[in-house]
């Protein structure tokens, strides 16, 4: 699972007590000591149905795998919901509403039922259809996929799960020395 790495590559980190002694003051409120559990935010912008749909889409785009949990566990849908609830731009809100409803109408067209009632394989085939032109989206549903994916990716890879479990990001810590190699002259 996550956080696997060999010790020999590990740069010399400074332990927390030493760091506090050195830096004191404002820096005590650093990341190690100030890590709060972010409670899930109940959705404020999307309807229940929309939220469930977005949550499912997020997990299809970035699913749980052997490495780490996916977008659902990282609460990506909640983050997007919160961002939209606070957004002063009605056109952004409109795009999301229309995009999700487009997914529903494509689902009805393809499978004769709502997206959440479609099979797992059907759901994937719908996403395959709307992502086929990803490099150059033209149709409204293709443009929606671009927005959906980049929003999910942003929310996921800035989450704790995305950064630490999935990517095993090792920075944002105090080091004695720069990590890396000496250059040969």
């Amino acid at each position: 699972m996550s956080h696997k790495h060999s010790d020999k590559d590990e740069p010399a980190r400074i332990d927390r007590r030493e760091m506090v002694k050195m830096t004191a003051g404002a820096l005590i409120a650093g990341p190690q000591l100030n890590r709060k559990k972010n409670e899930p935010v109940p959705h404020k912008f999307f309807t229940n149905e929309e939220f469930v749909l977005l949550d499912e889409l997020s997990e299809i785009i970035i699913p749980t795998d052997d490495q780490s949990k996916g977008a659902r566990a990282a609460k990506c849908a909640s983050y997007i919901d919160k961002t939209l609830a606070e957004s002063p731009h009605p056109e952004d809100k409109q795009k999301w509403r229309e995009g999700l409803s487009l997914i529903e109408s494509i689902s009805k067209e393809m499978f004769g039922r709502q997206f959440m009632k479609a099979t797992a394989q059907e759901r994937i085939s719908l996403l395959e259809r709307i992502s086929a032109q990803e490099a150059n989206p033209v149709k409204p549903e293709e443009k929606f996929f671009s927005m959906l994916k980049s929003s999910i990716a942003h929310a996921y890879y800035t989450s704790r799960i995305g950064l630490l479990d999935e990517l095993e990001y090792k920075g944002n810590t105090y080091l004695r020395e720069f990590a890396g190699e000496e250059i040969s002259k």
């Binding site: 785009i61 490495q67 990803e134 990716a153 942003h154 890879y157 990517l167 944002n172």
Partner: peptide, 27 residues
């Protein structure tokens, strides 16, 4: 080298496990 946000996350095409793995391996 590795940065806090993987720049390829928005440029890599696709979705699902294959996409996630590609982003992880290329970051």
């Amino acid at each position: 080298g590795m940065t806090m946000f993987p720049d390829d996350a928005t440029s890599m095409t696709g979705f699902g496990k294959a996409y996630k793995k590609k982003v992880r391996e290329h970051a």
